[in-house]
């Protein structure tokens, strides 16, 4: 679902799982929004409880695509992976680490805004 909020394009993923079955759809949507000239894009994962490698790939694809465009602000927010956030070896930690290494602006909690 795509929405405009205060000049920002917000893509809200209304799925509990971002995985091989639906990640291409998100990837294509992000690319289309960037092609259409969006300058400030937020991907809101507030409802997402599970991300696999292809879901992560879709987000990385968006990040790469956004990074190619000057003056474009890219954010991934509301990463709702709190179920195992206390375990140092957990998947959420791994994904957060990947996020840091790829210098995403990841906001761990809170709505898009």
């Amino acid at each position: 679902m795509t929405d405009m909020q205060n000049g920002r394009t917000v893509v809200s993923v209304r799925e509990e799982r971002l995985e091989a079955h639906n990640s291409n759809e998100l990837k294509d949507l992000i690319h289309k929004i960037l092609e259409d000239g969006a300058h400030n894009l937020i991907v809101d994962l507030g409802q997402v409880q599970f991300i696999d490698s292809s879901g992560l790939g879709a987000l990385l694809s968006g990040y790469k695509n956004a990074n190619l465009r000057a003056h474009l602000r890219w954010r991934v927010c509301s990463l709702a992976l709190s179920r195992c956030s206390n375990s140092p070896g957990c998947t959420a930690y791994s994904i957060s680490t990947l996020a840091c290494r790829t210098r995403w602006a990841v906001k761990a909690e809170g709505p898009a805004g």
Binding site: K27, D52, S53, S54, L56, G57, L60, S61, Y63, K64
Partner: peptide, 8 residues
């Protein structure tokens, strides 16, 4: 490298 694939 922000490759999209190869993490599964």
């Amino acid at each position: 490298d922000v490759s999209e694939r190869g993490r599964g």
